[in-house]
């Protein structure tokens, strides 16, 4: 028998009885970061492949949304800070050991880059738009010549951003459920998959939809594989990690995770896309929406579950 109690009555708000340092803001930030990473990656990749006129939505239209998505994501991060007036301190140092730091810097690079990138496509997306300021118009013309370079930059930064959304969590040893190297690739792939779903939602072009449907299917299969891998890893690890996995294998997160994330967010869209592929007509918007929703819920659950898996004071829960 082993029995623990805190007899001095510790009840620090936000820490006890269950750690709740991060609320909705961080999962939203991670979701939007992953989505933006996916959109930028596909845009840059297919641009470099010379598909800008085949996959118009992916290459030209989707990037228009990215600065807004990133803006909202950064807004959510800002709302999470409890000492907001000192926000600028993030940008007075770079601390490579701290994912929070290099992530914030990555966003600092990718945000303006995404603005410039989408500016070069403004004329294509809104043909009637005319830039009234000659200086800006000339600048955009100049930028257009640099698209190849920008695309390479975007591919690099979008991969870093996508990975970062997972590494931010997996860097924490203290939370057994986050402490797995799978989280980086899982969030990267999930982010790209939500990106593909977003493009699917908007695209009106048959060929483009087929392409992104196929991409999404591959990404979902990888994601499912990573999820299985994640749990196998935990179960083969130390006691605290086994306990963390059990939160999802019979514990409080079992129903939400397997129904909404694995079932409705991955398996159902995968089947729907597969059937569509086989000629059964299913409105593509349904699997796309499910993937987006599943991605969002995944982040909520992972952020939450990590905080309820701790080393000490488990008896307080």
């Amino acid at each position: 028998m082993q029995e623990l109690t805190i007899t001095s009555g510790r009840m620090n708000p936000g820490i006890d009885p269950v750690l709740h340092a991060w609320g909705w803001e961080i999962p939203v930030y991670l979701f939007l970061g992953g989505l933006a990473a996916g959109l930028l990656f596909f845009s840059a990749y297919f641009y470099l492949k010379g598909k800008e006129n085949t996959f118009v939505t992916a290459v030209k239209t989707a990037p228009m949304f990215v600065p807004v998505i990133l803006g909202i994501g950064l807004g959510a991060l800002f709302l999470d800070l409890s000492h907001k007036l000192y926000f600028w301190r993030l940008y007075t140092t770079i601390r490579l050991e701290s994912p929070m730091s290099w992530g914030a810097w990555t966003l600092m690079f990718i945000f303006p880059l995404s603005v410039l990138w989408s500016a070069t496509f403004l004329k294509d997306v809104f043909p009637s738009w005319e830039c009234k300021i000659p200086f800006v118009a000339r600048f955009i013309e100049w930028l257009k010549k640099k698209r190849t370079w920008m695309a390479y930059g975007l591919i690099l930064f979008s991969a870093v951003l996508g990975m970062y959304t997972g590494i931010l969590l997996s860097a924490f040893n203290a939370r057994p459920f986050w402490n797995t190297s799978i989280l980086g690739p899982l969030f990267l792939i999930s982010g790209f998959s939500t990106g593909a779903a977003f493009i699917l939602l908007m695209s009106k072009d048959e060929e483009e939809r087929k392409m992104f449907s196929r991409i999404d299917m591959v990404l979902i299969v990888i994601e499912l594989f990573l999820i299985v891998h994640l749990f196998m890893g935990f179960l083969a690890s130390t006691q605290v990690h086994v306990e963390a996995a059990q939160l999802f294998l019979g514990g409080p997160y079992t129903a939400v995770f397997w129904t909404f994330v694995a079932g409705l967010g991955l398996v159902v869209p995968l089947l729907a896309e597969f059937m569509e592929f086989r000629g059964v007509h299913i409105p593509v918007k349904i699997p796309a929406l499910l993937v987006l929703l599943g991605g969002l819920i995944l982040r909520f659950i992972v952020v939450d579950a990590g905080q309820s898996s701790r080393w000490l004071y488990k008896f307080m829960q």
Partner: peptide, 21 residues
């Protein structure tokens, strides 16, 4: 305190749950 932005990364990083806002 004058350098802390309140991101709470340190709180979740501490296996002893020794910190608070």
């Amino acid at each position: 305190p004058e350098e802390c932005i309140g991101c709470k990364a340190c709180i979740v990083s501490c296996p002893y749950d020794a910190r608070y806002v």
